[in-house]
Structures are given as C-alpha cells and as structure tokens.
C-alpha cells in the first residue's frame, strides 16, 4: 500500500537547517498494523504528516496505492487524503464549537455524502465507539478517553483504507488507553491499515511490526508475533 524510498525533509529557519527525515525508506502492506517509535524529535510526526499527505517531502519518492504522490499538488493530495486516510491525534483536535455528532459528521460533508446517509453512518460509528449517548455534547463536556473515542469515530466514519495515529494514547490514562488500542485493533482486524506513532512499548505490542527511528532514519524493524 505504501512504499517510500530515500525520503528527505528539511526544516529551514533563519540560521539552522534541521534534517527531520534523512533518506528514509520503508513500506507498509495493506492490512498491516505498524507502530513507529523513537526518541522525541526524531521525525515521527514529520513522517506521519507526509504519509498523510498533509505535508510534502523535499526529496525521495512516496508511492501510495501504486501512485507516485510525492509531487502531487495540494488539491490532488487533499482529494486523495479525504477519501483514503483518517487521522487520530494525541490532543484529539476536536472542534470545540461543534457537538460530538457534528464533529464526526464533518469528513462525510467534505466528501459529499448525502444527509440521510450521513446520519446513518455517524450513528453507526458512534454506536460502535459507545458514545452514542453523548452525541449532543460538546467536546469540553467529555473526558479525555471519550474525546479520543470521538476522534477515532471521526477518523473511521469515512471508512478509510489507512488510519494514521500520532500518539493516540498520549493524553490518556492506561485504562482509557487500552480501550483505544482495542478499538484500533478491531478496526485493523476488519481490514484497515494502521500506522501509529507511540512512545509506549505496551501500546506497540498491539501492532504487527515496530519501526524504530533515530535522527530521521530507520534503525531497526521488529516483527511482532
């Protein structure tokens, strides 16, 4: 599904140039559950943003579903993204002004799903995440665990082929964290490819494979059994 070769990403500020990704190569097959680990600042989020087509690499190739996307323009990337990829963030990133229902509904609006269908799918996914009873609440009225479940619901409502999760349990206690990991595992078992950044060895164990990064390069890959 994903194949990247010699990917490079630099950040230039006035004086210093940071190499966030340094000739990184890797691949992820359809249906895999991959964890990415590494010390703070090694380029995990940068990689995830590029994989999610939120950002473009400076050098190298990125093939997504047999299409070279490294030099796609903004609009093409957005188009590919909204139909194929769902995101889950450490800080949930729910919109404060919208209710749980409305937050989850957003991706469907942007992909042009008709209203009736939208309501059905949002309810379905809220039900699955067990937050149906909170559908009319605002994010601040929910606990962290509940918020993350809403975020996951929002990420999967469009039935994406790939879910990118950046430290999805980072702001949660262990019990809520485990719930989230169970949800992701379920989704993976139903066929969704998952790439997850995490600092927790515990969470990484839910995955099939761990990719370890250091200074923007792959240093080791562990296959989990």
């Amino acid at each position: 599904m994903i194949k990247i070769t010699n990917l490079e990403k630099f950040y230039r500020t006035e004086e210093v140039e940071t190499i966030a990704l340094n000739k990184l190569s890797m691949h992820v097959d359809t249906g895999e559950f991959v964890a990415i680990m590494g010390p703070s600042g090694c380029g995990k989020s940068t990689l995830l943003n590029i994989l999610g087509m939120l950002d473009d690499p400076d050098e190298g190739s990125y093939v997504f579903n047999d299409i070279e996307v490294a030099h796609f323009n903004e609009r093409k990337r957005a188009d590919l993204r909204k139909h194929n990829i769902g995101f889950v963030f450490q800080s949930f990133n729910l919109i404060d002004e919208l209710t749980v229902f409305e937050n989850v509904e957003l991706p469907l609006i942007y992909t042009g799903v008709p209203t009736g269908e939208r309501v059905k799918r949002v309810e379905e996914v809220l039900d699955k995440m067990q937050i149906m009873h909170r559908r009319n609440h605002y994010p601040q009225q929910l606990s962290g665990g509940q918020q993350q479940r809403v975020a996951i619901a929002r990420a999967v409502v469009n039935k994406p082929k790939l879910i990118l999760a950046d430290e999805p349990t980072g702001n949660l206690d262990s019990s809520n964290g485990n719930d989230v990991m169970e949800l992701l595992t379920d989704l993976n078992e139903q066929g969704t490819t998952i790439i997850m950044v995490t600092h927790s060895e515990h969470d990484a164990r839910y995955s099939h494979r761990i990719i370890r990064l250091l200074d923007g390069q792959t240093v080791m890959e562990n296959i989990m059994i």
């Binding site: 999610g52 957005a78 993204r81 909204k82 995101f87 990133n93 919109i95 404060d96 991706p107 942007y110």
Partner: peptide, 11 residues
C-alpha cells in the same frame, strides 16, 4: 479549527 477541517478534507 481550520487546520482540523483541512485535515478532514475541507476545500
């Protein structure tokens, strides 16, 4: 909010 919406596919 705009960032999130963009991530979710807003034009």
């Amino acid at each position: 909010e705009i960032g999130i919406r963009k991530v979710l596919g807003a034009s």
